[in-house]
């Protein structure tokens, strides 16, 4: 069991190669501090974010998922961040229906110049998830290997609502 008192959330963050990953680089170069609870993955674009990745992360033990991309209108690939936004909204609705707190999946726009903003968003998210407590999807029967299995979801969803 996770020690409630010393709960350190684990957050998987998805970044865009052109903006938010560079924002993270900039936060580093500028030595802006943020909590070490987030682990970042570089994608070429937020449009690459397959909702499965989010489910995989949550099912694999992450307490939250941070999705980042270029600001609307500033996508390196013209408009793919809008697609990410659409997917995010649908996914979050589904996750909320399954009993997940909406704060656990967060979408943040961060340009390559916004290292401070990204650090601040990470800090806020870590604090929010710390307050929510551990997710424990893994312990509750989700395994990474059935995470993308719709059937497993349906079963789990019933358990959550029950």
């Amino acid at each position: 069991m996770v020690d409630q008192e010393h709960f350190e959330p684990v957050i998987i963050g998805f970044t865009c190669n052109w903006c938010s990953y560079r924002a993270a680089d900039l936060a580093g170069t500028a030595r802006v501090k943020y909590p070490p609870n987030v682990r970042l993955i570089r994608l070429m674009c937020s449009g690459r974010l397959d909702p499965t990745f989010v489910l995989k992360a949550l099912a694999g033990g992450a307490d939250g998922v941070l999705i980042t991309g270029c600001h609307p209108g500033e996508c390196h690939y013209l408009e793919q961040n809008y697609k990410a936004l659409r997917r995010f909204l649908l996914l979050r609705r589904t996750l909320v229906a399954m009993g997940l707190e909406p704060a656990r999946v967060r979408l943040v726009w961060a340009s390559a110049a916004e290292g401070v903003k990204l650090a601040h968003e990470i800090e806020t998210m870590v604090a929010e998830i710390r307050a929510l407590g551990p997710l424990r999807w893994r312990q509750n029967g989700f395994t990474p290997d059935n995470a993308h299995d719709a059937h497993a979801f349906a079963v789990a969803a019933e358990e959550v609502s029950a």
Binding site: V10, I12, R39, I41, L43, M44, R48, D50, T52, F53, K56, A57, G60, G61, A62, P144
Partner: peptide, 20 residues
């Protein structure tokens, strides 16, 4: 599939980051 950013690569990286 996307070269360099395949599902396998990203899903495995998630597993790795979560120490699974």
């Amino acid at each position: 599939s996307g070269t360099g950013f395949s599902n396998d690569q990203i899903l495995s990286q998630i597993e790795g980051l979560l120490m699974l």
